[in-house]
């Protein structure tokens, strides 16, 4: 089992439990989609799987070990709103190299143009920013990618572009992948296994 969540329980307030004893396992070589309407807890689960939040109960294992709390996380999350995942005060070149130094090959793979590096996020479109978020998260220690509604805010052409690029890299580097989406058609298109959230 590459990434495994065991008996995750989580609630924001005492009244309502968002995740109640949820378990999920993803094998090596699988590309899994998690489908469900918004507000059902998909995003919360992906934040927990990527180590952004700690569950009230339960554990997340990566490659048989507990997900590390400090240091570079092998599970990286690509977020729904790229503009929120990028420091608006930084030029994009700085954002890109925050985690590691991507080589030219990766920039070409991601379709990132040289002149974008000297711009501020506000001068780029969502699709262009999302490319930076992906490239930034593709460091050599990244073994698993969670895409949380990664292209929901983008138009369909950009969506298809971004997925084409990301899937190319994921295949090349043999990374594990979890796709969180509300769009079942998209899930079917890109994943080997589809899990419906309410049936978990």
């Amino acid at each position: 089992m590459l990434l495994e969540a065991k008996n995750i329980t989580f609630s924001y307030t005492k009244k309502k439990t968002i995740l109640d004893n949820v378990s999920l396992g993803i094998e090596k070589g699988e590309r899994v989609a998690l489908v469900g309407p918004s507000g059902c807890g998909k995003s919360t689960l992906s934040q927990i799987l990527a180590g952004y939040m700690k569950p009230d109960k339960g554990e997340v294992y990566f490659d048989g070990k507990l997900l590390p709390e400090k240091g570079y996380c092998p599970v990286q999350l690509i977020y729904q709103h790229p503009e929120k995942a990028i420091n608006p005060r930084w030029k994009l070149g700085r954002t890109l190299t925050e985690a590691w130094e991507p080589d030219q090959e990766l920039l070409d793979d991601m379709g990132i143009e040289k002149e974008w590096l000297t711009r501020y996020p506000i001068e780029l479109s969502g699709g262009e920013m999302q490319r930076f978020c992906i490239a930034r998260a593709m460091g050599p220690d990244t073994k698993f990618v969670i895409a949380d509604e990664m292209t929901t805010m983008l138009d369909v052409i950009t969506q298809a572009q971004i997925w084409e690029l990301l899937l190319h890299i994921v295949d090349k580097r043999n990374l594990g992948m979890l796709v969180v989406t509300h769009n079942p058609l998209l899930a079917e298109r890109i994943c080997t296994r589809v899990i419906e959230f309410d049936k978990m």
Binding site: A50, G51, Y52, K70, G71, Y72, C73, Q76, L77, Y79, H81, K84, A85, I86, N87, R89, T95, E98, A99, W100, R136, A137, G139
Partner: peptide
């Protein structure tokens, strides 16, 4: 609590680095 600060943490950045690079400029 911004996403980019949380992401920075998952890239293995220390609290001190985050304070210098993200928080103080903000």
């Amino acid at each position: 609590n911004m996403q980019y600060v949380k992401a920075s943490k998952k890239f293995g950045k220390s609290n001190f680095q985050i304070a210098c690079h993200h928080i103080i400029p903000h």
